[in-house]
């Protein structure tokens, strides 16, 4: 087994653990803000590790660049979502159902 393969296996396993944790948290955590916490872990760390794992298999620099870009965009999106949803669901805010 080559080092790259081993690395990919380790990283994807790690990523999976974070995604599983994220989903379990999304289901089991009692309130919105702690669930938000679960979501961002999967977004940032889970996806990041899978991206690293895939980079080890990548065929060239363009692919590595694209993978990095995907992760950066996902992290930014996750940060924006987490921040704004957290604000919108604070007590005293306009009712998000309205």
């Amino acid at each position: 087994m080559s080092i790259a393969t081993l690395f990919t296996a380790l990283m994807t396993t790690g990523g999976l653990i974070f995604f599983i944790a994220g989903s379990v948290g999304m289901l089991r955590f009692p309130d919105q803000h702690s669930r938000l916490h679960a979501m961002t872990k999967a977004d940032n760390l889970g996806l990041g590790m899978i991206v690293l794992g895939a980079m080890a298999q990548a065929g060239g620099p363009l692919v590595v660049f694209k993978l990095a870009l995907i992760w950066i965009l996902a992290v930014a999106a996750s940060a924006v979502t987490a921040q704004t949803i957290a604000r919108a669901t604070l007590p005293g805010q306009a009712d998000p159902e309205a």
């Binding site: 999304m26 919105q32 979501m39 889970g46 996750s78 919108a88």
Partner: peptide
């Protein structure tokens, strides 16, 4: 907000699935 968060997580998962 809960529904939206769930969808957001599914979206990130989808990105990971495509990469895999």
């Amino acid at each position: 907000a809960d529904r939206m968060m769930g969808a957001q997580l599914v979206g990130t998962t989808g990105v990971a699935v495509v990469i895999l």
